[in-house]
Structures are given as C-alpha cells and as structure tokens.
C-alpha cells in the first residue's frame, strides 16, 4: 500500500500522440493524487510537447487527453513543472503553454511552473521514488 505523504515524482519525456506513454502518465498522476502522496510532475525533453496549445486530435480519431491535462489542478495535482531548456529547444514560448487549471478565487489560468535544469535536478534528488514515462 502506498504510504501517504511520501515524495514521488512523475517525469514525462515522450511526445504526446505517437505512443500511449503520456496518456498513461496522466492515469498514474491521478492515482498518486488519490492516495494523497506528495506528488511532483515534471515535463521535460519531448514531454513538453504535451503542453503545446491548440492540439486537436479529432482527425486522428482519438479523444486525446487535453481535457485531463487542463484539469490536473482539480484532481489536486498542483506541483507541475516544465523544463525551460526543453521548451526553448522546441520553440515553445513559456507563456504559450496550456493551463492545468484555474485559480478558485480569481479564475486566472494556472500554468505549470517553468524551472531551470538545476532546479529540476535538485527536486529529483529529494524524491523517494521517480516514475518515468
């Protein structure tokens, strides 16, 4: 049984629609949140492509998971981070990434927090376990 409050991290390093990895990572985020673990999520390398705005999977005949990503905060997945260098390498402006929820009071969009590689690395060393996708 998962121990409450243990620090766990989910890392997402795959591009969103070419494989099932990102979809699976979201399932795992929701499970960890349900067990009230101290969850951090980091999007890095090709994982940041999942945060690109304007994704529409209709013509691929799949539902996609943009709605799930947009509701992470509602599921109490609030510590969500994205690696600055990975965004830069892929030409994605930091202010153009999708929102993962809305602030309860102001209604302002909440976006993943952009971090430098050293900050991501430091956070990794604090975890009890890291689950990678």
């Amino acid at each position: 049984m998962a121990e409450k409050g243990k620090k766990v991290m989910v890392t997402v390093r795959k591009a969103p629609h070419g494989s099932i990895y990102v979809q699976e990572s979201i399932e795992v985020m929701f499970i960890f949140a349900t067990y009230e673990m101290d969850l951090s999520v980091v999007f890095l390398d090709d994982g940041v492509l999942a945060l690109q705005a304007g994704q529409d999977t209709k013509d691929l005949g799949i539902k996609g998971f943009m709605a799930s990503l947009g509701a992470l905060v509602d599921w109490e997945v609030t510590k969500v981070y994205v690696d600055r260098q990975s965004l830069k390498d892929r030409g994605i402006p930091e202010d153009a990434i999708i929102a993962i929820g809305k602030d309860d009071d102001s209604g302002a969009p909440i976006r993943p927090t952009v971090l430098d590689s050293a900050e991501v690395a430091a956070m990794m060393t604090e975890q009890h376990s890291i689950v990678s996708f």
């Binding site: 969103p16 629609h17 892929r90």
Partner: peptide, 27 residues
C-alpha cells in the same frame, strides 16, 4: 526549434510533406 535546420536544408533537395492530421493533433 533546434532541429528546424534539418528540414530547412532538406527542402532544397527534396519535396517535403507533412500529414495534416498529425500537425493538428500536435498543435
């Protein structure tokens, strides 16, 4: 992107196509 130069150079030697449904899915 850091890889844009690959296709920027390739279009001089090749016709390059990209599937529309895949572009849209990825924004």
């Amino acid at each position: 992107t850091v890889k844009s130069s690959l296709i920027e150079q390739a279009v001089r030697r090749h016709a390059v196509y990209a599937i529309e449904a895949d572009l849209k899915a990825r924004g």
